[in-house]
Amino acid sequence: MEITLIAEQLGRVGPLPITNTMLVSWMVTAVLAVFALLVGRNLKLVPAGMQNFAEFIIEAVYQMTEDIAQSRAKVFFPYLMTFFLFIITANWLGLLPGFGTIGVNEIHEGKEVFVPFFRSINSDLNMTLSLALISVILTHIFAVKYLGILDYLKRWVSLNPIFLFVGILEIVSEFTKVVSLSFRLFGNIFAGEIVLSTMAAIFAFVLPLPFYFLETIVGFVQAAVFMMLTLVFMSLLSEKHTE
């Protein structure tokens, strides 16, 4: 079994190539949507079962958002929560049996290659880069919203040469954010996939089990890290500057 950097393409709808990660991404969306509908449909004042679980997660994240972003928590929260839920569901769904193992052999460029139907979403840079771009672009949108366009621009451009230089550095750091967010997530999950498949190739029974535990933790940690970094970036950039 070989894991490629590029997600395998299953088909094509018009201009949109359907990769296996894209397919799983829709599955994750469907799973979360069904969960939301099941839980959100009949909420009770005295919670039970799934509602307890959902309330626990949402309250914990909301509390954290409020601690860091204060009054802006209400606006930031849905994005952060969705990042977290989407990434953690994707990571854990990617650990299920069948991921990377069920597929077909296809002739590709004269060679026979194995094309799995399912692949962990975040082991495809397209997915993580997309999330990172959304995160950073949202950060800037919120900054403009809370600071006003003038104060926002003052962050990057200044007549003072020192501040101008600092501004340029800041602009560079904004691009770094995209790179760090996307590659951190991609690297962790992709590495996990490789470790798991390597272990499975050595001995498929029991041996990969500790690494599955590890990947479960990594899946949670990466989701939390992505969410928290986004939260910190958002609240830092939309904070009023006091000079």
């Binding site: 950097l5 590029i6 969705t82 997915m127």
Partner: peptide, 23 residues
């Protein structure tokens, strides 16, 4: 080399916002 395609980025973004809206 990483197989990044703008159309896939966009598709994922759309996916994310649909999920965001539903949740």
């Amino acid at each position: 080399d990483f197989g990044v395609k703008p159309v896939l980025l966009a598709a994922q973004a759309v996916n994310f916002f649909i999920l965001l809206f539903i949740l």
